[in-house]
Amino acid sequence: MLSTSSQTGALAPTPGLAQAVPRSRPAVEIQGMSKWYGAFQVLHDIDLSVQPGERIVLCGPSGSGKSTLIRCINRLEIAEQGRILVEGCDLSKVTTQAVKVRREIGMVFQHFNLFPHMSVLDNCSLAPTSVHGLSRKAAEERARHYLAKVGIENQADKYPSQLSGGQQQRVAIARALCMQPRIMLFDEPTSALDPEMVSEVLDVLVKLADSGMTMLCVTHEMGFARQVAQRVLFLDGGRIVEDSPPETFFNAPKSPRAQAFLTQILH
């Protein structure tokens, strides 16, 4: 069961040939998705197609709908309109399917959301035992494997509160990876961290990107976006107003909103 990374590795596009990703069935396909909170429309008619192995960074001003967009992909939020297909399966139609699809999608949150009453090892092995039906031993083995990948195998028996923020976020990443997802969603994974811990988490993300994982990451770490992303999406007012490769986005943003946003965060 420990061969996952090499399996996903096989799906990975050759580095440098990012644009040549084969147009197979998209990992995620969003068609005409709109979402409201009460009378307030958060997302306007979103269309987005994500190829397997693609790495996408979402950015945009606060309140632009970045979190809502990626939370709709694993149905933490339900969009009232439009279709979301994950690996060809229409999430907006069949609600019972959502559970199955969630197994294919891992998510990492801004505030880690680890289970505080469980050891690091139990955090990571709970879902594999209860969802995949692994034996305790097999699940712990898998947990240790992914904890080693994020560089904290020696903290397995501690509780989350005994770890630093950076370590906790790495546990959260390992916990998600233990479900061996094919798509990973990240919602500002480094913005709750002390500055000195940001890089240890970004390093893990870069490694994960290198392994060929399909990734959607909301982040304002522009260095990371340049290094890892194949596409940068810029959201504003619930619309994707820019969708370009990072070079284009950073050097020649088309929309004035994106220009303003970039000058603001890059000073």
Partner: peptide, 27 residues
């Protein structure tokens, strides 16, 4: 119990039963 706990459990695909007995109730 924090909302994020429910969300983390849902994102991992845990059943409602497991979420309740293993995640929410103990906390």
């Amino acid at each position: 119990v924090a909302r994020g706990q429910h969300e983390a459990a849902a994102a991992l695909g845990l059943s409602r039963r497991t979420t309740f007995f293993k995640v929410i109730l103990p906390q």
